[in-house]
Write a protein that binds this DNA or RNA. Structure first.
Lengths: 166, 166
DNA sequence: GTTAGTTACATGCGAATGCATATAATCGGC
DNA sequence: GCCGATTATATGCATTCGCATGTAACTAAC
C-alpha cells in the first residue's frame, strides 16, 4: 500500500504518475534548496548580516525607486511584522534609509544608504562568487539556463498560467 | 557600471557570463521557492503542524529504521539545538517516540508513533495534492522530470562532483 | 463630509531559533 | 585500561519570529 512500483501502462501518463512526478520533483527541489542554503549560510562572506538582512539589501539594490515595506514583502520570505522589524534593525544600523512618502502618509519609502549599498556590493560580490562556484560545479550552462527557465515558470502566479482545458 | 548588457562574444562562454548565468538561475530558484513555500504555507491542510513539524514527520515516515537527531538534521533546515527542541515538542505532543539506542547511549532512536504516522499521512495526502496541483499547472511532465534531475545534481556534496579539469 | 471598509505599517506577547557552551558517551592510540 | 579527541544531544540566554491586534491614513459610497 505504501510502495506501489507497478508501472501504470496508461495511454499518456496516469494522473497518479503525474502527481507522483510533481511530488518527487518538489522533494528534490527542497533538498537542493536545503543543501545549497546550508552551504551558503556557512560561507564566511556575510560581514555580520544574516541572509535575510542581505536579501532585503539586495532587493533594495535592484530598485532605483524607493520601495515600500509591502513591496519588499513580496520578495522576502517573512511575515509582515517580521519584515517590519527586520527593516527597523537595518535602519538602526544605518544600512537602510526610511523617509516619508509624500503621496501616502501611511507608507514609508525605503532605500539603501551609501553604507548599505557599499555593504551589499561587498557581500554580494563574495556571495555571488560562492553561488557561481557551487552551481557551475554541478550544472552545465544549458542546465543553468534550464533551471532559470523552470524556476520562472514555477514562480508564475495563478493568474497568468498557461491554460490546459479551458 | 551597474548594468552591462554588452554581449561578450567569447569563444565558448566567458567566465563572466557563466557566473552571471549561475547567479540568475539561483535568484530565479529562490524566487520559485519563496512563491511556492508561501502558497503551501497558506494552504489549510496542516492540522496544527508547522511545515517544519511536517518535514520531520515526513522524513521519519520514509524510514523504517528509527533515526537519530543527526540523521534528521541532514534533511531539515534547522540548527542542531533547534531540531533538538522541535523533536522535544513533537515527542511531547505524542507524535514522535524517543527511545534509547542500545548500541550508543548518547544517541536517541526517533520514530513516528501511531498517531504521528496517521497525522503525517493525513496531512501528507492533502499537501501532496496541493503540491501536485501547483506544479503540474506550471510544468509539463518532461519539465517536472528535468526539475528533479537538476535538483538532484544541485544536491550533490562536494565529494562526488563530476570533475572538469583534473 | 461622514462613515464603513480597506490598506500600510507597528506593537504586545508568547513561542521558536541560533550561538555558545555544557554534558555525556564513544573512539583511538598507547 | 587510561586520556585526549570526537560525536550525540541538551541547555542557558539573547534574539528573532509569527499571530493577533492596534493605529493611522486612504477610498468610496452615500
Amino acid at each position: 500500500m505504501t510502495t506501489a512500483p507497478v508501472a501504470p501502462a496508461a495511454t499518456h501518463a496516469s494522473s497518479r504518475g503525474r502527481t507522483r512526478l510533481a511530488n518527487d520533483a518538489w522533494e528534490a527541489a527542497l533538498g537542493a534548496h536545503t543543501a545549497l542554503m546550508r552551504r551558503f549560510t556557512e560561507d564566511d562572506v556575510w560581514a555580520g548580516l544574516s541572509m535575510r538582512d542581505y536579501d532585503v539589501l539586495y532587493t533594495l539594490s535592484k530598485c532605483d525607486a524607493p520601495q515600500r515595506l509591502s513591496d519588499l514583502g513580496r520578495h522576502v520570505m517573512l511575515s509582515q511584522p517580521g519584515l517590519s522589524r527586520l527593516v527597523d534593525r537595518l535602519v538602526e544600523r544605518g544600512l537602510v534609509g526610511r523617509c516619508a512618502d509624500p503621496t501616502d502618509a501611511r507608507a514609508a519609502h525605503l532605500s539603501l544608504t551609501a553604507e548599505g549599498r557599499a555593504l551589499q556590493r561587498r557581500v554580494g560580490r563574495a556571495h555571488g562568487a560562492s553561488v557561481a562556484a557551487a552551481l557551475t560545479a554541478r550544472l552545465t550552462d544549458e542546465e543553468l539556463a534550464l533551471l532559470e527557465s523552470l524556476s520562472r515558470k514555477l514562480s508564475l502566479p495563478d493568474d497568468d498560467l498557461p491554460e490546459e482545458t479551458p
